[in-house]
């Protein structure tokens, strides 16, 4: 009798272990996949391939494990296991610092810098994505534990789609109309339509601008867009992204060819000049439209009564 009971208990324990294992495995796999999926959308901002990918996949794996273990731990009444999540938060804040330090260091050696706002945005995204992985793996393991692993996979995929849907920020194309424009000189002063960009003293430089320079105008769609484009960090991010995508006709000693975005205070319109290696205007417009709106630049004066009132 006693032997049979023990055998039954052992079997039960084994079933429980298998269930825990299946739960954790589902959560870990789905969470790590989620991190990989989110990394794939990063290439424009952060192309350090493949070592950075390994680093972030490894951190994603750690985050997924933490999320996946939480459910079986709570089911086993191991409530203290939840404190692991607090540990995770500390870990991922370090990810943000690591990314920031690295990007600031390499920013000095790029021809068109990202600027501190863009870097902060990227670093923050890297931190946040680890929390999103915890969320995905938690959702997957919860469904796997409560129902069965196939449901866990389904829940994980749903969580991923949810993350994809809500974490997609706005693009410049959503807040402003981007159109081609003509650049011209008045004496030594460079203008894009009526927007003064800079003063260029040398004739050779002016000739290069006249031959190869390209200009676009960004017209904010509303007052929110106007304030976003007023942000200097946002404009630096546009200059960086466009230069990275189209190439830039400059070297360290030709500061004249740094792409510039200047604002007409009266209208809020922003003019941009660049001397790209690839002079294709359609690609230039697409590059500008696809620059992300930085979180630090995102403001909504129209959401406040005073802002709406001032807008009329």
């Amino acid at each position: 009798m006693r032997t049979r009971k023990t055998a039954k208990g052992l079997k039960g324990a084994e079933a429980g272990l298998n269930r825990d294992l299946a739960t954790i495995l589902t959560g870990v796999v789905l969470g790590t996949l989620a991190r990989y999926w989110m990394l794939r959308r990063d290439f424009r901002q952060y192309p350090s391939y493949p070592h950075a990918v390994v680093t972030h996949l490894a951190l994603g794996f750690v985050a997924a494990t933490l999320g996946a273990v939480a459910v079986p731990a709570i089911a086993a009444k191991e409530y203290t296991a939840v404190t692991f999540l607090a540990l995770a938060a500390t870990q991922f804040r370090d990810v943000r610092n690591m990314e920031r330090e690295m990007l600031v260091a390499i920013d000095q050696s790029s021809l068109v810098s990202r600027g501190p706002d863009f870097i902060e945005g990227i670093a923050r995204t890297f931190e946040a994505r680890n929390y999103l992985v915890v969320f995905v793996s938690l959702a997957a393991s919860l469904a796997a534990y409560a129902l069965s692993p196939p449901y866990g996979i389904l829940a994980g995929v749903l969580a991923m789609l949810l993350v994809h849907r809500f974490m997609r920020g706005k693009l410049i194309g959503d807040i402003a109309k981007v159109r081609p424009a003509e650049l011209h000189f008045e004496g030594a002063n460079l203008f894009v339509e009526d927007i003064h960009i800079m003063n260029l003293g040398l004739k050779e430089i002016r000739r290069v601008y006249e031959e190869k320079g390209r200009a676009v105008i960004l017209e904010p769609l509303d007052d929110n867009g106007r304030e976003i484009l007023a942000n200097v960090g946002q404009r630096q991010a546009i200059a960086h992204d466009v230069a990275a995508l189209l190439g830039i006709h400059r070297d360290v000693d030709t500061a004249e060819f740094t792409p510039l975005l200047r604002r007409k205070a009266e209208t809020g319109r922003v003019g941009m000049v660049i001397v790209p290696i690839e002079p294709d205007m359609e690609c230039l417009l697409a590059a500008v439209r696809n620059v992300p709106v930085l979180e630090s630049a995102f403001v909504r004066p129209l959401a406040a009564r005073a802002g709406r009132c001032a807008a009329d």
Partner: peptide
């Protein structure tokens, strides 16, 4: 001068 100093010449 502008090349050596990595600056921009303004008129």
């Amino acid at each position: 001068l502008s090349r050596v100093l990595e600056g921009v010449a303004h008129d």
